[in-house]
């Protein structure tokens, strides 16, 4: 029966349990008050109907009652607010050691890139039990990545990276929807997330179509585009030295300070004149229309690798290993 009439979605992430707990609390509280109000309306309508209660008892109002039904709901609302805010803040702050996956949304498909170089379309493989952070951008209109079994959703904007994260708890294959209306095939912009046991995931990562890690793609691009002419790593060139830049604060020529994150790097490539580093001239040409979103992600990944000589956490990235035979990912539903 529950195959054809499902009433509750599967729980497959750490956040899902917390969201469901609050949901059940709210269902209980609002269910109680809703039923109470329905019953009271019916009871009053029948008990005080005109044939039975022809004489009205005039009651003007009661400050005590007004205060009660102002403050009691308010108190309950505050419990809901604080509880839900706790979940939201967890959702809003990805853990620092999360695996990273880059997402590019376009009409009407999802493209995923793993730092190790694997690319996927409308399908995302992730390891079981590890926190995964998605850094997302759209090539055209606003999309929204929604993973119902993980209770996670985040709009994907053009022009700016947004992030979300989840930590899976159950292997299997789960829905992936676009929930921000994006045009004709909006309802076709769907896919699946495949949660794999870590070993199987490692096997999947190293097999197949990788063309070198994202950072190495970025490195090649960095040279092809001639960035090295000005951004030198040995001395200070005409542009700032980018070694160790990622994640650090940058002093701008107008006195402001910004953090060199993905969004800043992206903006500096596309509109170099917007935030010029103190002590440099705004001479860099724009790369708008020259590099696409995926190339921008690889450039950011390259700059990031320049700040982390050890290249991420051990074990998550092993381009030097001999390729495993490609194994079909386990799927269950």
């Amino acid at each position: 029966m529950w195959q054809t009439l499902p009433l509750w979605p599967a729980r497959a992430s750490t956040l899902a349990g917390r969201t469901d707990a609050l949901m059940i609390f709210m269902l209980a509280v609002t269910g109680f008050f809703t039923v109470m109000i329905f019953i009271l309306i019916l009871v009053f309508a029948l008990r005080f109907r005109r044939t039975r209660n022809p004489i009205v008892t005039h009651i003007e109002g009661s400050n005590a009652l007004e205060a009660a039904w102002t403050l009691i709901p308010f108190g309950i609302f505050m419990v809901m607010f604080i509880w839900s805010a706790g979940i939201y803040m967890t959702w809003a702050q990805p853990p620092p050691n999360a695996e990273e996956v880059f997402v590019v949304g376009k009409q009407w498909m999802w493209k995923f890139e793993h730092p190790e170089g694997q690319r996927e379309i409308d399908q995302l493989h992730v390891p079981l039990g590890r926190a995964v952070r998605l850094t997302m951008i759209s090539q055209d209109v606003i999309h929204s990545l929604f993973l119902p079994e993980f209770r996670v959703k985040q709009d994907v904007l053009p022009g700016r990276y947004t992030t979300t994260w989840f930590q899976t708890t159950k292997p299997g294959s789960y829905h992936l929807f676009c929930t921000q209306y994006c045009g004709t095939m909006h309802s076709g912009m769907i896919g699946e997330v495949v949660v794999m046991e870590p070993a199987a995931y490692q096997a999947w990562l190293s097999g197949g179509n990788a063309e070198g890690s994202l950072a190495s793609t970025g490195q090649k691009l960095f040279q092809q585009l001639g960035c090295t002419t000005c951004h030198r790593f040995d001395t200070q060139g005409r542009g700032p030295n980018l070694l160790g830049l990622y994640g650090k604060p940058v002093l701008l020529d107008d006195g402001r300070t910004v953090t060199a994150d993905d969004n800043y790097i992206r903006e500096s490539i596309l509109t170099p004149g917007a935030k010029v580093v103190a002590g440099f001239k705004p001479i860099m040409p724009t790369f708008q229309g020259i590099v696409n979103e995926e190339q921008l992600l690889s450039l950011a990944a390259y700059l990031k690798s320049l700040s982390q000589p050890e290249r991420r956490q051990p074990g998550s990235n092993r381009p030097a290993e001999p390729p495993h035979p490609a194994s079909a990912p386990a799927r269950s539903r």
């Binding site: 609002t30 809901m80 839900s84 979940i87 929604f146 996670v152």
Partner: peptide, 18 residues
């Protein structure tokens, strides 16, 4: 009452645009 669910940040992340 169901508006309260949508105002609840943690739940809205799940049910928004559904």
């Amino acid at each position: 009452m169901t508006g309260l669910y949508l105002a609840a940040l943690g739940i809205d992340v799940h049910v928004h645009d559904t």
